[in-house]
Amino acid sequence: MLAQLLNGLQYGLLLFLVASGLTLVFGVMGIINLAHGSLFMIGAYAAFLVAKATGSLWLALPVGLVGGAALGAALEWTLFRHFAKREHLDQVMLTFALILLAEELRWLVAGNDFHSVPVPAFLDFSVPVTAGFSYSAYRFAVIGICLVLALAMFLWIERTRMGATIRAAAESPEVVDILGLDARRIHLTVFAAGTALAVVAGVLAAPLTSVYPGMGDSLLIISFVVVVIGGLGSISGAFWSALLIGLVDTLGKAYGPAFQGSGTSGTLIAALSGSSVYLLMIAVLLWRPTGLFGQRA
């Protein structure tokens, strides 16, 4: 059980890194970025390439953070800025095109094979957590790094002037104009930060999941679930809902199938356990249509 809780925590924290960027970008800029999963994939492949070239995964972390922010800024500057006021359909077309571009780029650079990324040598050991089950030290490190990043984000959003503007912009975008704030700068910052987080999540996840074509797709969907449950645009909402989903998903997958064979209801539970997360989303939407932490309809 302890091991399963750890699994849920680690999965949830990684989800948070991806979902927080998604929710910020949507909250502040009103853009549904379908290419957010591709950013995650870019991070993972960057980790693979950097680790292969230098033998060190740690180098990929700053590269991912800085490179991700730069990439985000560039994308915002050249593309997203011009689409902020456009219809959602246009934005969907744009971000979908970016997915295709990213996949094509991945194919050119790294091909279509699965690649595994080695865990950094000094973390390549396991820590026994229960009798007969060990947890890799790298997974503990990922939990730690995610918590640090989450804390940094919390402080940035809750305790700084920039953070306050972002919160304001996320809650009611008109306020930014009324107060005469520089919307462009806010958008640029938010998009760069969101991109950097997704890329870093990809870097961290690379040794855990391997890198493979389309790896961002399933993560994108689950990140949307996180955003919807947490409430659009809410960072703390994304945090708690990511943890909730990490746990529900892990426990559902671990214990649900055990009901198989114990009568009709057992079979039903087993069959639905893989979709526990989506059932949770439906329940939350029925109960609180704006999400657990959402304020805006």
Partner: peptide, 10 residues
């Protein structure tokens, strides 16, 4: 995501 499965094996 093999961890939830592996943790059951012991």
């Amino acid at each position: 995501n093999f961890q939830p499965l592996l943790a059951q094996i012991p």
